[in-house]
Simulated assay, not measured.
Amino acid sequence: MKFNLLGQFEMVADDGRSLILSRSKVSQLLGLLLIQNGETVGVDSLIEELWGENVPRSALTTLQTYVYHGRKIFASVPGGRDILITRPAGYSIRVPADTIDVAVFERLVQQARRALEAGHVETAAEHLDEAFRLWRGPVLAGMMTGPVLDAHLTYINELRFAANELHIEASRRLGRHQEIIPWLRLLVAENPLNESLHAQLIKALHSCGRRAEALQAYRSLWRTLDVELGIEPAPELQILQHDLLTARTPVTAAR
Rank of each mutant, 00 (worst) to 15 (best):
7 G>I: 11
9 F>C: 05
12 V>S: 03
13 A>E: 04
18 S>Y: 01
22 S>E: 10
24 S>T: 14
26 V>S: 05
27 S>I: 09
31 G>W: 05
35 I>V: 15
40 T>L: 04
43 V>D: 00
43 V>I: 14
45 S>T: 07
48 E>S: 11
50 L>E: 08
52 G>Q: 06
74 F>M: 07
77 V>Q: 07
78 P>M: 09
79 G>W: 12
83 I>R: 04
100 I>T: 07
105 F>A: 10
110 Q>G: 07
113 R>A: 10
119 G>H: 08
120 H>R: 15
121 V>R: 10
124 A>E: 08
128 L>Q: 03
132 F>P: 00
137 G>C: 06
140 L>K: 08
140 L>Q: 08
144 M>T: 12
146 G>S: 08
147 P>N: 13
147 P>D: 11
148 V>N: 06
150 D>E: 15
154 T>H: 08
159 L>E: 07
167 H>P: 04
168 I>A: 13
171 S>D: 10
172 R>W: 05
173 R>F: 06
175 G>C: 11
176 R>A: 11
178 Q>K: 13
185 R>I: 09
186 L>D: 12
186 L>Q: 14
189 A>M: 13
194 N>G: 03
200 Q>A: 15
205 L>P: 04
206 H>E: 05
209 G>W: 09
211 R>I: 03
211 R>Y: 00
213 E>K: 02
215 L>E: 05
223 R>V: 00
230 G>P: 09
233 P>T: 07
235 P>W: 14
240 L>T: 01
245 L>A: 02
247 A>E: 15
249 T>A: 11
